[in-house]
């Protein structure tokens, strides 16, 4: 193959093509799928997932993996809700401080995660998975199994207030997507993620403090998880231990389907945006055309395999473990 249709181009644009085909497919079967109101619904369900997926994108670019998102999201959501209610219960009072507090909590969990991974030399998937369980347990300890309702009309404006047909939370997510893109492409931190993912020994040999970078990466991921937690609470008005449920499968699937390679160095936040949209378009579209839920899981599983197959240059990979 050569010209336009070479492998690299295909891999680069495949996720976007898949997204367009899916949209076309669902629209043909049910024209109401492509209405502004439905696109807004897809955007609402995508917004929290996008934040979490962007967080883990940085880690995957480094060639590590982070599975702590469910615990981190739950803890951030619950701490936010408790602080928010304790400080007045409306954004217009001191309760707005709960927003940065939640982000700090996310960063702190990410920092711990990074420390365990780097200093104790625990593989990242194990360190983060364990930290995720710790987080879920801690959130349960805080709530005692109860749900905390966040009723403030101003905060819930994230969902109820709309500009051009889309709720505010969608614009917040877009803003953080741009921040993620800025970090990825315009800062030394972002470029170093790629350097480590592309070849850790090389990066280390050129004087990069890889350990420090990894810890920074996990902190940054924690920040994005916390933003995702805030949007998740904004979406359903409830913070609970279960707030983090499903984010692990959802975000890792999105990142992979979006074309970010699991061994690092390739991909980025725009891939993740496309991946998140693919996953949520399938989730929404299946219900809209009336296919049962298990078909949805099956289709997602197939897409993950196809995505990994496409993004793998099998000539350069000598063995798989």
């Amino acid at each position: 193959m050569n010209g336009i249709l070479n492998r690299e181009t295909l891999v680069k644009w495949a996720p976007l093509i898949v997204l367009f085909i899916l949209i076309l497919f669902f629209t043909v079967l049910e024209p109401r799928f492509f209405s502004v109101r439905n696109l807004a619904r897809i955007a609402i369900s995508s917004a929290p997932a996008l934040m979490v997926a962007i967080g883990v994108t940085f880690i995957i670019i480094m060639g590590s993996i982070d599975l702590s998102m469910e615990g981190t999201v739950s803890v951030s959501a619950v701490v936010f809700a408790f602080a928010f209610l304790a400080l007045g219960g409306t954004i217009l009072s001191w309760a707005w401080l709960a927003l940065p507090l939640a982000v700090l909590v996310g960063a702190a969990i990410g920092f711990l995660n990074g420390l365990v991974h780097v200093k104790l030399k625990v593989p990242s998937f194990m360190a983060s998975l364990a930290m995720g369980f710790v987080g879920t347990g801690f959130a349960l300890l805080l709530t005692g199994g109860d749900r905390i309702r966040v009723e403030d009309e101003v905060f819930r404006g994230l969902l109820t207030e709309r500009w051009l047909g889309f709720p505010v939370m969608v614009y917040v997510a877009l803003a953080f997507l741009l921040i993620g893109w800025f970090i990825q492409s315009r800062t030394a931190l972002g470029r170093n993620f790629y350097a480590v993912g592309g070849g850790e020994e090389l990066a280390h040999a050129s004087g990069l403090n890889v350990n420090r970078l990894r810890i920074m990466g996990f902190m940054l991921a924690g920040v994005f998880y916390a933003v995702g937690a805030l949007l998740a609470v904004g979406r359903i008005g409830i913070a609970e231990t279960a707030t983090g449920n499903n984010f692990m499968f959802m975000s890792i699937t999105s990142v992979v389907v979006g074309g970010t390679a699991l061994w690092g160095g390739v991909g980025g936040v725009w891939n993740t945006l496309v991946g998140v949209l693919i996953v949520n378009v399938i989730g929404n579209g299946m219900v809209v055309i009336g296919l049962p839920g298990y078909v949805q899981d099956g289709v997602l599983g197939l897409l993950v395999i196809i995505a990994v197959v496409l993004s793998t240059d099998r000539k350069s990979v000598s063995f798989v473990k």
Partner: peptide, 21 residues
């Protein structure tokens, strides 16, 4: 009739889909 797995967020998404459909 669609399963929402006893889950608030899943139910939220399924209901959105129903509203479109």
């Amino acid at each position: 009739a669609e399963p929402a797995d006893w889950d608030t967020q899943k139910a939220n998404q399924v209901m959105s889909g129903f509203l479109t459909r």
